[in-house]
């Protein structure tokens, strides 16, 4: 029921907004939110902050570009029905591999390992011309046709991204209630006790990373279709940090926080240059992000929930007065 408050406006927005707001603000926020969701999931339920989520999104994005139509003449075109699951599978495998490498590390060590993997992947895509087309990457990565139109048009792509976002949130909520999801949370809370009970911790960790790869991969495919391109810049240091910022300012308490963080981040990113001297717009972005982190240590979503709670309390008190 609570979700309808968000869902109904989200479904109606395309009829009131311009293409720019729909595509460049909302769709981009949804896509970044999906990728950030994969990080929020790991951080909240496994207790590991991974810097490799942009790389996982990149694996799926590169796969969809390599196995699909593009304008750089590299790759093997496959039918849509094959390349989509293949791209997601590759992202899951990449996630599982990262989980395998990082399975024994926590805290700052897990950050270092995943950061190293992310940066190594970035330099690899930039240097490798056979699979990744180096610096320039792939262009002309078009989504499939939708009748006589394209899934890449603003409205279809918005609804597609919205649908994928809802599915991803639902999957996360289903996963954390499943036995495997509970084991993942047990690894977070007390790995020693889990081992003492005779449950190995390796499998839940790898499974959690693979699952996050699936979510990040979904976002990565949408991102490739949205940008109509994927290149080494899509997996570079900038996107790695962006994803972290979005997760943190949105809040890690609930999966949907990632989307709140994404929309704030995207609006700032687009409009900061209009508000301030163009030499210093990054300063404004930094100050606002800093203010958010200081004022809302649990993220913007938690802040909003607290405000609503406070308003309700006040409303409940009023008749008594």
């Amino acid at each position: 029921m609570r979700y309808l408050i968000v869902l109904i406006p989200a479904l109606l927005l395309p009829f009131v907004l311009t293409d720019f707001w729909l595509a460049q603000v909302l769709t981009r926020s949804l896509i970044l939110g999906i990728i950030a969701l994969s990080l929020s999931f790991l951080a909240t339920y496994l207790g590991v902050v991974s810097f490799a989520q942009a790389s996982l999104a990149g694996v799926a994005g590169y796969a969809i570009a390599y196995f699909g139509p593009n304008t750089v003449g590299i790759g093997v075109p496959l039918p849509f029905i094959v390349k989509l699951p293949l791209a997601l599978l590759l992202a899951m495998i990449a996630g599982a591999l990262i989980g395998f490498v990082a399975r024994r590390s926590r805290g700052i060590y897990a950050i270092m390992i995943t950061l190293a993997i992310g940066v190594a992947f970035f330099y690899f895509t930039r240097q490798n011309y056979v699979l990744f087309n180096g610096f320039t990457g792939f262009s002309g990565v078009l989504p499939p046709a939708l009748g006589d139109r394209s899934w890449g048009d603003p409205r279809p792509l918005y609804y597609l991204s919205l649908g994928v976002a809802i599915i991803c949130v639902a999957m996360v909520q289903g996963f954390v209630r499943s036995p495997l999801g509970l084991a993942v949370q047990a690894v977070r809370d007390a790995p020693g006790r889990l081992l003492a009970l005779g449950i190995p911790t390796t499998f839940p960790i790898i499974a959690a990373f693979a699952f996050s790869g699936l979510i990040a991969g979904s976002g990565g495919i949408l991102n490739a279709w949205f940008q109509e391109r994927v290149s080494s810049f899509s997996v570079g240091f900038g996107p790695i940090i962006d994803i972290l910022i979005i997760s943190v300012i949105g809040g890690l308490r609930h999966p949907t926080g990632a989307f709140v963080g994404a929309i704030v981040y995207v609006i700032l990113d687009i409009f900061a240059i209009d508000l301030i001297d163009r030499d210093r717009f990054n300063l404004l972005i930094g100050i606002v992000l800093l203010a958010i982190v200081v004022a809302a240590p649990n993220g913007l979503q938690q802040l909003a929930i607290d405000w609503v709670g406070a308003l309700r309390k006040r409303a409940a008190k009023t008749p008594a007065n």
Partner: peptide, 22 residues
């Protein structure tokens, strides 16, 4: 109307779309 990109093709495309559509 000045917008910034960051040397990446993605950011240049985003900047151009913003100029055209917004």
């Amino acid at each position: 109307i000045v917008v910034s990109s960051d040397a990446s093709p993605d950011s240049a495309v985003a900047a151009a779309r913003r100029l055209i559509e917004q």
